[in-house]
Every structure is written in structure tokens, then in C-alpha cells.
Amino acid sequence: MIGRQFPLALEFLPALGRADFLIAPCNQAAAALVDAWPDWPGPHALVYGPHACGKTHLVTAWREKSGASLLDPARLTVDGLGDALDVAPGTVGPPAWALDGLEEIADEPLLFHLLNSVRERQGSLLMTARAAPSRLNFTLPDLTSRLAAATAVVIEPPDDDLLAGLLIKLFMDRHLTVDPDVVAYILPRIERSFAAIHQAVTALDRAGLAAKRRVTVALVRQVLFQ
């Protein structure tokens, strides 16, 4: 084995290309939705699933494919909507926009107008949310019915294979080289959620850096499972 690798503190770039997205039964439909664009059944699509399940990753991959611009929920206003949706001159292909995190929008008429404007411009909008459209606590009837009519696909809780793959991927993203026995030790002991895997890798990366140690079973035991 070649020399050890030490990650740079804080600075790391997760691999967010489409090919870096791990496909499993739980997220197959969501990945297929991104791949199917521009042949979507309608202008509005929504991917929903728990925290850290890969929604932003899919949005990034889709933007690479579609050239979609990312709408900032914190800065959108009804008056500024027209400008926000302006497409740069010279853009080819159908216009596309992405909105990562529907729950960050409190102004329901704004979201309603956004959906209408995207339809009027014959464009596509990919949205993400933590929960299904019917669970987002929006109350404006025109909005809820439009969201309910969007092509919505869920990312389900991860299965065992995906958890293993994700664990490795997140280590790789941080340039951490770990042996298979580390993965084999963590998997049967950890909460089986996307968020738990993310937290574990972050904690191990930090602990490894602080102690200037490789991530080994001993370190895992100490950091994650006392």
C-alpha cells in the first residue's frame, strides 16, 4: 500500500456528477427522472426524501445536463420573479430552473406564480423537498393542487448496499482511505439512515485529523461507539 493520505481541513469537494450518484432500489426512480429530462410528462418535477439522501446531488447532476439555473429561495420575490427567470441570451434548448428546498419558501403566492411562469415559458423546474408535496403544509389551494400534480418521485430510506456504497463514497470525497474492515465494522452498528452515515464520516474525518491518525476500527470504536 502506498503512503497515507491526509485530508485538508474543511476543504473538500464532494463528487456530485451523475456518475457519482449511487443507484439503489430506493433512489432508482429519482435518478431515472433526472436522466429522462427533457422528456418529462410536465413542466414541474419534484424529488423528495429525508435529509442527506442525495437530493442536492441529483439537482447538481441535472443542472449539468440541462443547464438549469439555480433559484435561491431566500432571494426570490414576486416582483423579481421575471428577472430571476430570465434566460441568458444565446442559451440553447428549453429553459430550465432548479429550486433546492421547497420548504424554505414561505411566500405561497410566490411559489404559485413561479410554477405558472415556468409553465408559461415552456420550461422545466426541478424542485426538492424533505416530504411529499401533500405533506409540505402549504395552504393556498391553487398551489397545493399544482404541487400535487407535479411529477413527484420519492427517495426511500437506504438499503444495506446503498449504505455501504455511500459510506465509501463519503470517505473518498474527503480523500480518506479506509480498509474494508472499517466499513464492515461500522455498517452493522450504525443507525441506518442517510443522515447518520454523513454524520459518522464527518466525525471520523475530524477525529482523524485532530489525532493525525488514519481511520481504523480502533478509531471508529472510540469516536462512534465509545
Binding site: R18, A19, I23, Q28, A31, A32, D35, A36, P38, D39, W40, P41, G42, P43, K65, P94, Q122
Partner: peptide
């Protein structure tokens, strides 16, 4: 490149033809 498509075996999709039956023919 994208135009080459995802030739890797992991792409469990139907690709573009999946929606053609009811695609946005109105574009």
C-alpha cells in the same frame, strides 16, 4: 461526453423514450 450517453451498466433507466407516449408534444 453527455451525448455519448451513460453506457455504464448502472443506468437503470428507460432513457428518453420512456415518456414519448405522452411527452410534451406541445413544445
Amino acid at each position: 461526453s453527455h451525448s455519448a450517453g451513460h453506457s455504464g451498466g448502472h443506468s437503470a433507466t428507460h432513457g428518453a423514450s420512456g415518456f414519448s407516449a405522452h411527452g410534451r408534444d406541445g413544445a
